[in-house]
């Protein structure tokens, strides 16, 4: 009785659109649709698998997971270790660090675009000064991708920091003390005590960020709109472009279904870990 209203709403605004997308993906419906909609089976899925741009987008998406997230993890881990002690102002500094995570992605993307403007951007002048990269980062196919990764790292490493910090501060201090008494140096304490203790926390954080990475859209949309020449065309931008620029709604729907399945697959593991954590 209590669950029913929520269930109905979820059914109408979540389950129905998902089924709708699935059904549409088997048809040839377009944005400017005049004639009859025809059932075409798996044709769109075949087209997707044969499209080089799709695989390119998938690779870029994979790059976010294998490059940006590990860097975020490493920065977050070391800053968490740094903060895991008493020093003045630590609490206020910690909450200040969380600000970027909540900054609207659009604003973050636009600000990075400003900072990377060739003639007056602060970051562009800095990179120029140390002769790193081209003058116009966002116009270069390789550096535009680096720029969106940097933006993501800047925004999301504090997320890793916060989760790891929470894990660290719940660790009994006897663990580290015991290791110290046994004569373990910093690296041994880090490798044999801290890391094993933090492993479940890190795994969950990593999985959460993996799903996040599938959802990156607005910051890249405003920074590069997938360009130059597809260099930053992540899957979500690919879907958006197919649907609303080329008007290929039904094809976009099939890629969307693919993305949905991948996201649900990862989130299955997140939920399973989470529930197990609550039972323990």
């Amino acid at each position: 009785m209590f669950v029913l209203p929520a269930l109905i709403v979820v059914g109408v605004i979540l389950a129905y659109p998902v089924i709708y997308a699935l059904v549409i993906s088997f048809t040839d419906r377009e944005l400017l649709y005049l004639g009859k909609t025809n059932f075409i089976g798996l044709k769109h899925y075949r087209e997707m698998l044969l499209d080089r741009n799709f695989w390119h987008s998938l690779r870029l998406q994979f790059g976010v997971i294998t490059i940006a997230i590990p860097i975020e993890l490493i920065i977050g881990l070391f800053v968490a270790i740094l903060f895991n002690r008493d020093f003045p102002f630590s609490k206020i500094l910690r909450s200040l660090l969380m600000l970027p995570v909540f900054v609207l992605p659009v604003l973050s993307g636009l600000t990075w675009r400003l900072m990377l403007q060739p003639s007056y951007g602060v970051l562009a002048s800095f990179f120029n000064f140390i002769s790193l990269g081209p003058t116009a980062w966002l116009a270069d196919t390789r550096y535009a991708y680096v720029a969106i990764l940097l933006q993501d790292i800047w925004r999301m490493w504090p997320f890793m920091f916060m989760i790891i910090y929470a894990g660290l501060s719940s660790m009994p201090s006897e663990y580290v003390e015991a290791a110290r008494i046994d004569g373990a140096n910093f690296f041994q304490r880090f490798w044999y005590v801290l890391l094993p203790y933090l492993k479940p926390v890190i795994a969950t954080a990593f999985l959460l960020r993996m799903i996040d990475a599938l959802r990156i859209f607005s910051e890249v949309y405003v920074m590069t709109y997938g360009g130059p020449s597809n260099a930053t065309m992540l899957l979500s931008l690919y879907i958006h472009k197919q649907a609303f620029e080329f008007g290929r709604l039904s094809y976009a729907a099939s890629v969307a279904v693919f993305l949905l399945i991948v996201a649900l697959f990862i989130s299955y593991f997140v939920v399973k870990r989470g529930l197990r954590g609550e039972v323990e």
């Binding site: 979540l14 998902v18 949905l260 996201a263």
Partner: peptide, 10 residues
């Protein structure tokens, strides 16, 4: 955790 873009089209 469903990506918004997947639902944007439907």
């Amino acid at each position: 955790m469903i990506p918004q873009i997947s639902l944007a089209v439907p």
